[in-house]
């Protein structure tokens, strides 16, 4: 099964479960979790079910397109179900079957793996799902987001698309994976992988990045004074990506690192709190919709 079909299959599966199919969010980020579709929407009492593909940038993982397993940018298929349904594990396992993975012919396990993102003040408990020893999915019950208690609890399911595809297509090298109709990941991403690696490790302008970080941070702070949650959050994402570029370049010492993470966290917490307040001011509209639809 090619990657395009995998994505279509997962979209169909989760759409059938009542998920809103979203598109990738248009700001650079390290993981699907950081999209406001997850991070902000999993806050507060409103139900929220969503699925989307998220291109995820991890500058430090760039390998000039030479490493068969590591990428500057990989793809995640992200699912959020809030509140987490009682049969969420079963729904997930059904999705593997839809991808042609018969559990009886493999060894599928849920191995404890708790997730924590101190920058976003977020933490959850769950597992990594192993398929014959390969971690193919991160499965998390959010407990805390932006320093706030997650209530109700969202289940977050994050498939590593390339990982899963390398298993399904039985390929050793990520660049040999078929995206669609004979077009490979290499055809699409080799050049960007190489160029982004050159940029990240050799060409990036450190001073400019330091300046950008400060600029983005100030902008986010300014926006928060006006309670403009979503734009402020975009600038936090920009801060985060800029920080990742600096970190990959190896120009942030351990102490500075703690300082930067602390600054982003402070902003994230404030945004989380304000988001919930604003939703409350609006009367938690999606909550009402849900309730009225049951009447």
């Amino acid at each position: 099964m090619d990657i395009q079909t995998m994505i279509l299959t997962l979209q169909k599966h989760w759409s059938d479960q009542g998920c809103i199919l979203m598109q990738a969010y248009d700001t650079e980020k390290g993981a699907g979790t950081m999209s406001p579709m997850t991070l902000l929407r999993s806050l507060g009492p409103e139900p929220w079910n969503v699925a989307y593909v998220e291109p995820s940038r991890r500058p430090a993982d760039g390998r000039y397109g030479e490493n068969p397993n590591r990428l500057y940018q990989h793809h995640q298929f992200q699912v959020i179900m809030k509140p987490s349904p009682d049969n969420i594990q079963e729904i997930y396992l059904e999705s593997l079957k839809a991808l042609g993975i018969d559990p009886k012919q493999h060894d599928i396990r849920f191995v404890e793996d708790n997730w924590e993102n101190p920058t976003l003040g977020a933490a959850g408990l769950g597992w990594e799902v192993w398929l014959d020893g390969m971690e193919i999915t991160q499965f998390t019950y959010f407990q805390q987001i932006g320093g706030l208690e997650a209530k109700p609890v969202s289940a977050e399911i994050t498939y590593g698309i390339e990982r899963l595809a390398s298993y399904i297509q039985d390929k050793e090298n990520v660049f040999d994976l078929e995206w669609t109709n004979g077009v490979t990941v290499g055809d699409i991403f080799s050049q960007p992988e190489y160029e982004h690696s050159v940029y990240t490790f050799e060409e990036s302008d450190e001073q400019m990045l330091f300046d950008l970080f400060t600029t983005y941070e100030k902008e986010a702070e300014k926006l928060m004074e006006k309670d403009l949650v979503f734009p402020a959050y975009d600038y936090v994402l920009k801060c985060s990506h800029t920080f990742n570029l600096l970190d990959a370049k190896g120009v942030i010492s351990v102490t500075e690192r703690t300082g930067y993470i602390g600054r982003v966290r402070k902003l994230a917490r404030k945004i989380a709190k304000t988001y919930v307040e604003k939703r409350e001011e609006l009367g938690f509209p999606m909550l009402e919709e849900e309730e009225s639809s049951h009447e």
């Binding site: 509140p83 987490s84 349904p85 009682d86 708790n114 959850g124 408990l125 019950y141 407990q143 209530k151 109700p152 609890v153 289940a155």
Partner: peptide, 9 residues
């Protein structure tokens, strides 16, 4: 380590 799930407390 303990956790909550769904709408439960």
């Amino acid at each position: 380590k303990n956790m909550r799930w769904g709408n439960r407390s």
